[in-house]
Each structure stands twice: as structure tokens, then as C-alpha cells.
Design a protein around this nucleic acid. Structure first.
Lengths: 176, 176
DNA sequence: TATAACATGTAACAAGTTACATGATTTC
DNA sequence: GAAATCATGTAACTTGTTACATGTTATA
């Protein structure tokens, strides 16, 4: 999945040049994938060696930070990766669904109790994504699409959990 | 994500004992996560060493295969993993959305052409999942939940792509 | 009898994370 | 002046994949 991460870094640097620390703050928040600090710094190094980005040393007193910006080669690679990735459909994996598939190993009441906790966690996560209206990363028109997608996905999860709960409650009734 | 993979193997073996090859055929088809052959065989080895599963040698002529079944300890671990994973909400990552976030780097017409190819691929994938009605892995009542979830997820992707397309077409009109 | 499917692995590799290290600056 | 935050890494580790190896049985 290196390609997606590279595209992400290139895309962000393409919009505004940045130093690694700032980049990492962005990534923590709204990125559609995990990209931890060491990984980001490492990728920046490699992309600099490959000539995709260039680092300009910026000194504030004793402290220096490296501000990265896209080179022309980087712009080309960005477009190449983009044209490669957009037309490809790679369905998300959903490891979290494995456990849901085995709920029938539990008693209905225990399953319901555990599902309720999952649903609350999902709702809390959904709230943390905010509404389309007050999106801090909103682009012109439609908001930052990956965040909007994350909202939809969380909504789907909550709805799906609700249906699973309903189904178990129904089965419970039948047996009573 | 080892825990999800372990739970998956344990849960499948709990339903019916199986040898590795058969297990892998199941996994290729409808598992909510990737689990390649060497990984599966390796996990089976480790779980056998840990006493979670036991392997019974079954010979057909010269060929032997190892049929794995849950031990009591394995059953306990299965339940422990299940009780751990059900209440936890871990949102899916969506690396495939990175590229969608940078569509504005392309001309509207190129973006639309690339999106159309992605949408076709998504629709083909959706068709491969079949309908709830003729689910070959259907459980009593509601079908195998991870597969049903995969259908919803694919539907969401297709719908979302449609909206992105519509939005770009709209923007194009405005500029015309 | 050659090819595909069955059945099980090994070994090298790639990718990303965790935990840790280091020093500067700002804030309480 | 202690703690938090800024800023950038290194090194070891975990995890999972790829490519390959090996021998068996069914199928064309």
C-alpha cells in the first residue's frame, strides 16, 4: 500500500509545501489510512532521494525544520499514481466483521450486550467526524471527499449493527 | 490484525473440522480479510503448538493431510477473542479513497473517464457477491453477515462514485 | 502422459509500527 | 524550572506476502 501513502504525501505537498511535523498532524486527523510519523519521515526521505520532492532547510534560531515541496518530477509521479489508482476498484477489507460473523456462538443476551457497546463506540466515532456542513477540511463544493466517505461508512456500520441487533432480538422472541 | 485472523480460523474450525487446503479455499472466497495460504498454514502450526487446535493425520494412499479441530482450550480462546472483538469498533481504513481526494488535479473530462472505469469495476465486484437470496454461505435467518456487509459496502461505493461523478458533471456545466 | 488440482510448506522480502532517543522552544 | 509541544529521526520487531519447492492424485 505504499503507493497510496506516496500519493497522499505528494497530494498534500502539492497543495501546500510543508515540513514533516505539520504533515504528520494533518495525517493524524483526517487521512483515510494510517501513516505513522516514522513512516512519513521515511517516505519523505525516499521521495527526496528519488527527486520527487525537495527539502528546503528553514532555521528558526537553533532549530531547523525541512520544508518539502514537489519537484516537477514529483508532479509527474503524482499524476501517474493518480491515473493509476482512480480507475482501480479495490474493495476495503473489513477485519472487524470477522467477529460479527460468529455472534451465534454467544447467547442472544450476551451478544446484544456486546453489540450495544460496539454501537456506542461507532456512534462516538461518527460524531467525531462532524457534519458535512462544518467540515474544517471542506473543499469548494462538496467537502473533502475521503472524510465524507468516512461519514457514510460510519453511518453504514451503525445501521448494519442496528439490523444485527434487531435480528437477534427477533430470534430471541421466537424462542420465548 | 493477527487476532482477527486467529478468530476467523478458530471460528471456521469450530463449525467443522478441516484440513488446511480446504480452509484456504473457503478463505479465498468470502473472508472479510486477506489470509494467504502460507499465513494460514503458519497460524495453524502456531495454534497447534499453543494447544488451541489439534491436528489429526488422515491418510489417503500416499497422501496425508492434517485435519484440524478445536481443543477445549481453543474453544475458550475463541470465546475470549470474540468477547474482545465484538464490542470494539475499529473503523475500516479506506486507502482507495486517497486518489478520490485529489481528483481536482485532473481535468473534469479525464476525471470522469477514470471514474467510469472504477465504477464498472465496482459493479463487477458487486455482482460477484451475488444477492442475499442465493447466498451459498447463508446462515439460518440472515445469511453470512460479513458477506452481507460486503454487499452493503460495495453498494455504498457505487453510490458514492455516482455522486462524485454527478458533482463533477455539475461543476463542468457551471464553467460552460 | 502431460496438465491441472490437491496438499503442505520454506525462505526471503517488504512494509509499517512500536519504542526509544535527542535536542529545541514554548508555556505554566 | 518543569512540563508540554515542536521537530526529526533510529533500530528492532511484527506481520503478512511473494516466489519457490515438493510430492501426490485425478483428469484430459
Amino acid at each position: 500500500m505504499t503507493d497510496e501513502r506516496k500519493l497522499l504525501l505528494l497530494g498534500l505537498l502539492r497543495q501546500t509545501e510543508m515540513h514533516g511535523y505539520l504533515l504528520n498532524e494533518h495525517l493524524d486527523g483526517f487521512a483515510p489510512l494510517t501513516l505513522k510519523k516514522p513512516t512519513a519521515y521515511n517516505l519523505l526521505d525516499r521521495m527526496q532521494r528519488d527527486g520527487w520532492v525537495e527539502g528546503r532547510e528553514e532555521a528558526t534560531g537553533e532549530r531547523t525544520r525541512t520544508v518539502y515541496s514537489l519537484t516537477e518530477k514529483g508532479e509527474n509521479e503524482f499524476l501517474r499514481l493518480l491515473r493509476e489508482q482512480v480507475p482501480e476498484y479495490v474493495p476495503n477489507e473489513s477485519p472487524a466483521l470477522v467477529s460479527i460473523g460468529f455472534l451465534d456462538a454467544l447467547t442472544p443476551s450476551e451478544a446484544l450486550a456486546l453489540l450495544e457497546r460496539r454501537r456506542e463506540a461507532a456512534q462516538a466515532f461518527r460524531r467525531s467526524l462532524g457534519d458535512s456542513a462544518d467540515d474544517p477540511h471542506a473543499h469548494a463544493g462538496s467537502g473533502y471527499l475521503p472524510v465524507e466517505y468516512a461519514r457514510r461508512l460510519a453511518d453504514l456500520d451503525i445501521e448494519f449493527l442496528g439490523e444485527v441487533v434487531a435480528h437477534i432480538e427477533h430470534g430471541k422472541d421466537e424462542k420465548a
